[in-house]
Design a binder for these strands. Structure first.
Lengths: 231, 231
DNA sequence: CAGAATTTTAACGAAATTTTTACAGCGTTT
DNA sequence: AAACGCTGTAAAAATTTCGTTAAAATTCTG
């Protein structure tokens, strides 16, 4: 799942091709695990939590289609087929069993890489729904992905500028921000004169977010300088 | 949008291949629309709301890669490339531009069908159609498979746009969607100016779905930002 | 082709938000 | 103590955004 080093599993019985894929893919900064048989491959796929599987259909111990079905029974991770056999029926069976792509040997390594990128792209897109950014400190919770603010688990409505202001404070949480800086980020560079806007909206935010707006616990004033969000 | 008849768009300038694809794919119960040029293809892709695009790279009016990028700028729908040119570099460029698959001519029709099924499977899993077959919150129930909407178990009729709007809201339920985003998904990328459409149709939806349309409980507006479906 | 359903266009009052204006508190300086 | 700079709050006016209605144009359907 890490962006920098996707994990691949290569299920291939031919030692020379396996070696070639290992060295070439590792050179491309993939984390590569290997399996020589279908059974071993299924186990690896379940244990290693890979981002993508490369599967040779010509395995000695079981039919390639069975390997695909086994993996598909519990996961939707991308599977790319490599095969010496390039009969149409073979391809169709593999794709319908759940494979995402099919390359016939001899294949070009550049094309394989491109198709791996396609597979990873798909996985990224279908998994990103789970990645929810949430900022939390004390009773304040901000769901940045859904754009919803909670105080003590009760929803609080913020106007666009109020929300933008809060986001800027969260972005630089813990640091003291000058009024100039905040004005520029929230209202734009031409509003740097209007420092009183900031006081008005900061007051509004405190009314909505702080337990006692006159004794703020998060949105603190640094007199003469600006504001800071305590974490 | 119905499960039985997926919609395809074929972007191909060669009349004989276009004709062949039309008759063959229609025989497979696909709804087929055609375009002879890249420009026309981009328009069709935005207007027809297809489930998948089949694109010939050798178009007369513009580079195939540009067509891919144009569609990718607003949609993630599956794109399968057909091409007479089968140079490795060409394939890699197309795949990295956002294409999901690449077939070199001459191609086998059975394989094309299998790869179309792969593309539709992906789309089904990660977007257009939702994970759940039935969405429910409070008195609102939407049977996405049969395209039927209920309020307090009474069937409610929605026009095509009303239904599509509701589906987009359901797809991103709980999240605040910008007007831009909704307009792009429901009307297409060229409608981003027409924010008033959204107000009209949102009003219509509320009239039909909410108990008290003036005090909505599900279809909430985030003034200055957009809308969100509360779950 | 006619009638119905739907989408698009146009218009206007209502609501929400931003901006303006005004004033009070508080510590420091003169 | 009055004056000053800086800050916080409240309420108004101005502006933007939103909701609703109705009629015109278009598309669908039999």
């Amino acid at each position: 799942m890490t962006k920098s080093n996707p994990t691949l599993i290569v299920i291939e019985d031919d030692p020379s091709i396996r070696g070639f894929l290992r060295t070439s893919l590792t050179a491309q900064h993939f984390q590569v695990f290997e399996a020589k048989t279908g059974k071993q491959g299924i186990i690896e796929a379940s244990v290693r939590k890979p981002d993508l599987v490369i599967l040779d259909l010509g395995l000695p111990d079981m039919e390639g289609v069975e390997v695909i079905k086994a993996i598909r029974s519990w996961s939707a991770l991308p599977i790319i087929i490599l095969s010496a056999r390039s009969h149409e029926q073979q391809k169709i069976e593999a794709l319908d069993a759940g494979a995402d792509d099919y390359l016939s040997k001899p294949f070009s390594f550049g094309e394989l890489l491109a198709r791996i990128r396609v597979g990873l792209r798909h996985a990224l897109r279908s998994g990103e729904a789970l990645a929810t950014e949430v900022f939390q400190t004390g009773p304040l919770k901000v769901d940045l992905h859904h754009r919803i603010v909670y105080v003590n688990d009760a929803e609080v409505h913020l106007t666009p500028i109020q929300y933008r202001l809060l986001c800027v404070m969260i972005k630089h949480a813990g640091k003291v921000l000058t009024q100039q800086h905040i004005l520029k980020e929230v209202w734009g560079p031409s509003y740097q004169e209007n420092a009183h806007y900031l006081r008005i909206y900061m007051s509004q935010l405190r009314q909505k977010l702080e337990h006692d707006p006159s004794q703020p616990k998060f949105l603190l004033t640094e007199s003469g300088v600006g504001y800071r969000l305590k974490v």
